[in-house]
Design a protein around this nucleic acid. Structure first.
Length: 802
DNA sequence: CGTTCCCTTG
């Protein structure tokens, strides 16, 4: 009893915060007036009860009315005071109090009160239970719910239509749709609310199909849908992106003369925008006579979702100026995708600022949307800051953070965060996996890749095309092109991305001809290539040196397929020009490009200059890269290596100094090789391995055999060998060589040695690997950041250009 | 006695 009162005095506190403590509700705006603030005509809500102190006579009509007034106005402490003082042997009074608790979000109190009622021997009736059941739903407590449900069965109220409607609602809220279904199925009589509850129940848990089927069944049984049913069914169409069903229901709405209902109109706006029909949404919107913030938000969100960022901002302005409507949390949330899509960081930040000023934060959904926005606007630091400051996170928040890391090239961080998710109570879902797989592709060894693949199968996501595509790419990036191909062949519903992926898989392994074959196979199957298809195809041509084919495809993009080449395609063509050794043409190509060159474009010129030993052009490329990406470590390293090759040691030191000044640290080169299912990682000069001695002995023998003087030639041009060795980073013990040696001695003859490396393979390791493949008669694969080098009989698949 | 519109991720 005492605890109840304490809870009650807390009530006003919660109410002022406008959110119950456990649920993460959006902060309310001024627009919506909660039902509970309606004042009782009899008694002012804040005034303590004075007039009814000495209570001797049985409950009069006014006392009961007063009690109801308190309950209705949300003054539960006043109601309780009155309750304790009056004669409360009547079931009705108890029902009023329980209803009061439940409707004011005090679920535990409602349940406690029900048990007190039982304890005091007051008979409960069919009006008691609906609110007890609702309280169980509010608590999200299956145990409490089933306890009450059991009681209902015992006293034979479990088939009461009202009670059942509440039971359905409760099970849906707790997330057990099958239990709701069972209640519904067992009902001897159903009313419209029963149907509506089930239709909305399916919609709430995301089963749009079931929702629509239920809706249809209801109509077939001769029931007429009301606004509630319509709204839920329209929502189900949004989930399923079912435009046809949506339009069908729209017709029913018109026939039922419900099209003037603003909530129905709003859900139609939402449905049409989710189905990609913004113009239809606009038409519905324009017919609304007096628009509220929800309708405005739906329209702004619709524009945002369909990539009309300009229109969504224009509508924001119109909403404020024409309708004097003040943006709320949902407005803010709906605007954020517009910022991400157009890369409008400044707008994103000012929206964030607005949200702070309006005290919308902390709020889970908004924070999660901010993480996404900052991630996509390439402001990883701000994404991390928002994420770290969240006091509550859900799976979507985690997923967004993983994606933000991946989108900003922080694959290691993404994998670390993924490990954290595995320790969370919420299991990763398809989106987590889809987000993290690119990080695995970059950083994982083949056996680690197999591990995550097994986990995906365990989660039951094996037939998800989106994920399968990412797995296909991951195997290719882990050096296992065969498994990659087998998985591709096994995808039941291949989409365009599947084809783009397998074309790219063969491309990075240097099988450009196969990529081209796959492209024509894809077209035979009736797929229309998109921009990404051409990225795969042009990469294939440039990596395999298929110059003429490359130009042919590049020209066909616009002519045959009507695709305007994007910056990424110009990048591929630049690689192709570099590959052909035509640096002058490459430079001209950049100058005459119709698009503004990005860091990737200049990086391509830099790589071409490196491969053609043109320091002047390399410096030009590097200057541009660094003006766009001042922290591009790879750029510094590449330039420094070129100076070293040319013997320009002062320049090497100058770059080293520059990097130190900017606080840039060279990425630690790491090579990995799988031995008996275990991944062994090596860094340069690594001596930490248990079998270090053997590895170094074998390497020594091999180096002698292939002739040190050959592979060290370029370095000893300018410096004596002992000086290089003293510097501590002699290429003879680079990580790639250590990994290759360990692979050679630990795997059976006949099998290829597969090494994966996180940075570009160096000239010396490349030369050595060719020779080693020749003297050992073994096939060696080294995947670096860009391509796989297949070394066999002294040659490399990359044709010595990478 | 009850249910309803806009609110984040690949």
């Amino acid at each position: 009893m005492a605890s109840t009162l304490i809870h009650c005095s807390l009530y006003n506190f919660y109410k002022n915060k406008n959110a119950s403590p456990k649920q993460n509700k959006p902060p309310k705006t001024t627009q919506v007036k909660p039902k509970t603030t309606r004042k009782s005509p009899l008694i002012k809500r804040t005034q303590p009860n004075i007039s009814l102190k000495p209570l001797v006579r049985p409950n009069g009509l006014e006392i009961t009315r007063a009690l109801c007034g308190f309950v209705e106005s949300g003054s539960m402490d006043n109601a309780l005071n009155l309750f304790e003082k009056m004669n409360h042997s009547d079931t009705f009074i108890w029902n009023v109090i329980i209803r009061g608790f439940t409707n004011n979000g005090l679920f535990q109190e409602a349940i406690d009160f029900y048990y007190r009622m039982e304890y005091e021997g007051i008979r409960s009736d069919n009006f008691t239970f609906p609110f007890v059941v609702k309280a169980c739903g509010g608590l999200l407590s299956l145990i409490e719910g089933q306890k009450v449900h059991g009681k209902l069965i015992k006293i034979g109220l479990d088939l009461d239509v009202y009670v059942c409607n509440f039971l359905i609602d409760m099970y849906v809220k707790i997330g057990f749709i099958e239990l709701a279904e069972k209640v519904f199925d067992d009902m001897p009589v159903r009313d419209l609310v029963s149907w509506n509850s089930m239709i909305s129940g399916y919609q709430i848990v995301g089963e749009g199909m079931s929702s629509l089927m239920c809706f249809r069944e209801m109509l077939e049984l001769g029931n007429k849908a009301d606004r509630f049913g319509m709204i839920s069914a329209i929502g189900a169409c949004s989930i399923e992106r079912g435009l046809r069903s949506g339009m069908e229901i729209h017709c029913q709405v018109i026939r039922s003369e419900l099209e003037v209902d603003i909530m129905v109109q709003t859900s139609l706006i939402d449905m049409y925008s989710k189905c990609g029909k913004v113009d239809y949404a606009e038409r519905v919107f324009n017919r609304i006579s007096s628009k509220n913030i929800v309708a405005w938000n739906a329209m702004i969100g619709g524009y945002s979702l369909n990539n009309y960022s300009f229109e969504s901002f224009a509508f924001l302005k119109r909403m404020q100026e024409d309708d004097k409507v003040i943006p709320d949390v949902v407005t803010v949330i709906n605007l954020l995708p517009s910022c991400s899509q157009s890369g409008a960081l400044l707008e994103g930040k000012s929206i964030h600022g607005y949200a702070i000023r309006k005290m919308f934060l902390p709020y889970l959904v908004l924070e999660t949307a901010l993480v996404d926005m900052y991630g996509k606007c390439r402001e990883l630091k701000l994404a991390v800051r928002v994420f770290d400051q969240m006091n509550e996170k859900n799976l979507v928040s985690w997923n967004n953070m993983v994606a933000a890391y991946v989108q900003n090239g922080q694959n290691g961080e993404a994998l670390t965060l993924f490990q954290h998710i595995l320790n969370e109570p919420s299991k990763p879902d398809a989106i987590t996996i889809a987000s993290v797989l690119p990080a695995f592709a970059e950083l994982a060894s083949r056996s680690e890749g197999k591990h995550i693949h097994a986990y995906i199968m365990k989660l039951g996501l094996g037939s998800n095309t989106f994920i399968s595509n990412a797995v296909v790419y991951m195997y290719a990036k882990c050096g296992d092109l065969q498994t990659s191909r087998e998985l591709f062949d096994g995808i039941m519903c291949k989409d365009l991305v599947s084809w783009n992926t397998i074309i790219m898989a063969y491309a990075i392994h240097g099988f450009g001809r196969t990529s081209i074959q796959l492209f024509s196979e894809m077209r035979k199957k009736g797929f229309k290539p998109n921009g990404s298809t051409f990225v795969s195809l042009l990469s294939a041509c440039s990596i395999s040196g298929l110059i003429d084919e490359g130009w042919g495809f590049f020209n066909s993009m616009k002519m045959e397929y009507g695709i305007d080449p994007g910056i990424e395609h110009f990048g591929c063509m630049l690689d192709l020009l570099g590959r052909a050794g035509n640096l002058a043409a490459a430079k001209l190509f950049i100058e005459e490009m119709p698009l503004v060159p990005t860091a990737r474009i200049w990086g391509s010129l830099l790589a071409a200059s490196r491969n053609n030993n043109d320091i002047v052009l390399a410096e030009l490329g590097a200057r541009h890269v660094l003006s766009l990406e001042h922290d591009n470590t790879g750029c510094y390293v590449l330039l420094s290596n070129m100076y070293a090759d040319a013997g320009r040691w002062e320049d090497v030191d100058r770059i080293k100094y520059l990097m130190k000044e900017k606080g840039l640290v060279k990425t630690v080169g790491c090579s990995m090789v799988d031995i008996n299912g275990r991944t062994e990682r090596f860094i340069n000069q690594d001596k930490s391995h248990a079998q270090t001695n053997m590895i170094y002995d074998v390497l020594d023998i091999l180096l002698k055999k292939i002739g040190e003087e050959i592979y060290l030639h370029s370095l000893t041009k300018f410096r004596p060998l002992d000086v290089i060795k003293k510097r501590g980073n002699s290429p003879e013990h680079h990580s790639v060589k250590l990994a290759i040696c360990f692979g050679l001695i630990s795997t059976a003859i006949g099998n290829p040695v597969i090494v994966k490396k996180n940075t570009r393979i160096c000239e010396d390791c490349h030369k050595a690997a060719k020779k080693i493949s020749q003297v050992t008669k073994r096939e060696i694969l080294v995947g670096d950041a860009k391509v796989f080098h297949h070394f066999r009989d002294g040659c490399c698949s990359c044709g010595d250009y990478w």
